[in-house]
């Protein structure tokens, strides 16, 4: 009898095993939804899949009377714009500061305590401050993402820079590199793939901050829509929207992973990961 730790599923088997929990969850939902709908046809909490599909189709094709835009696409565009802008700004700041504090001990001594303290401030707690400072426009939402995500990126990149073998820094100096060249030719290229990896991890919290900010003050956006229809218990809107957000998050994550593997094969060979 083979040990359990040595039994590996075949390729097809892996797919099947992976799909099984989804199928089970779907069946449980279907059963519950059907039971409740049988008891009362106007039940809104667990809408039938057909209702959800119909609502989703409507949201994705029919322009809203009030704003003249198609809700799903308008919301998606607005949210992705905020998310993209927030994450891009965070990545830029994170890479710059992480590179500098990781490479220059003088700056690290100055900035590290500040970054550590800032990273401990719960971003949601200062959301009111942001609304007061920036108004309830786009700026506050982007700022929340930046404030929430940047300290993590800085700390992660700094620690990765510190983990690079000293031999490499010494080697670069024996090849005649000055400080700037060490940052530019040794640290920066090795931090860039790490930035992609930590951005992937940070996307989860970026979504969280985005939806929270949109829920509180916005005129459009995925988070805004969900919290708007909550008042009418419109689960037939909320559940498809959640699925849609999940799909977007998944696609973003896969896209970043793909870019990283294409652009930095040496990094993935070193980390020994296949994802």
């Amino acid at each position: 009898m083979k040990r359990l730790i040595n039994i590996r599923p075949s390729r097809g088997g892996r797919w099947l095993l992976g799909a099984l929990p989804f199928v089970l969850l779907g069946l449980v939902y279907l059963g519950l939804s059907r039971a409740r709908l049988a008891a009362s046809p106007n039940e809104r909490l667990l809408p039938a899949p057909s209702t959800m599909l119909e609502t989703f189709h409507q949201l994705a094709t029919e322009a809203s009377v009030r704003t003249g835009t198609i809700p799903l696409w308008g919301d998606t565009l607005a949210s992705l714009e905020r998310l993209g802008l927030g994450v891009a700004i965070s990545a830029l700041i994170g890479l710059t500061i992480g590179l500098l504090t990781g490479g220059l001990p003088l700056l690290r001594a100055k900035l590290s305590p500040l970054v550590t303290v800032l990273s401990l401030v719960p971003p949601m707690a200062i959301l009111p401050v942001l609304f007061i400072a920036f108004g309830t426009g786009e700026m506050a939402k982007v700022a929340l993402i930046v404030i929430g995500v940047t300290p993590f990126l800085i700390r992660d990149l700094q620690s990765h820079a510190l983990r690079l073998p000293d031999e490499q820094l010494i080697k670069a100096q024996t090849l005649g590199a000055n400080s700037w060249q060490v940052l530019l030719r040794v640290l920066l290229p090795q931090l860039t793939p790490r930035l992609l990896a930590s951005t992937r991890l940070a996307l989860g919290s970026a979504w969280l901050f985005l939806i929270a900010a949109e829920a509180i003050a916005a005129q459009d956006g995925l988070g805004y829509r969900i919290f708007l229809v909550r008042r009418y218990l419109a689960m037939d809107v909320i559940l498809p929207y959640v699925a849609w957000i999940t799909l977007l998050a998944f696609l973003l994550d896969r896209a970043l992973a793909r870019v990283s593997q294409r652009a930095f094969p040496w990094y993935h060979a070193e980390e020994g990961d296949a994802s």
């Binding site: 490499q168 010494i170 080697k171 100096q173 024996t174 005649g176 040794v186 090795q190 070193e270």
Partner: peptide, 20 residues
């Protein structure tokens, strides 16, 4: 008291740049 181009070095490992 810092490394310079007048002294070359080869370590047992990590001597080359993995990203190049």
């Amino acid at each position: 008291d810092e490394p310079g181009p007048d002294r070359g070095v080869v370590f047992q490992k990590y001597s080359v740049f993995p990203h190049l």
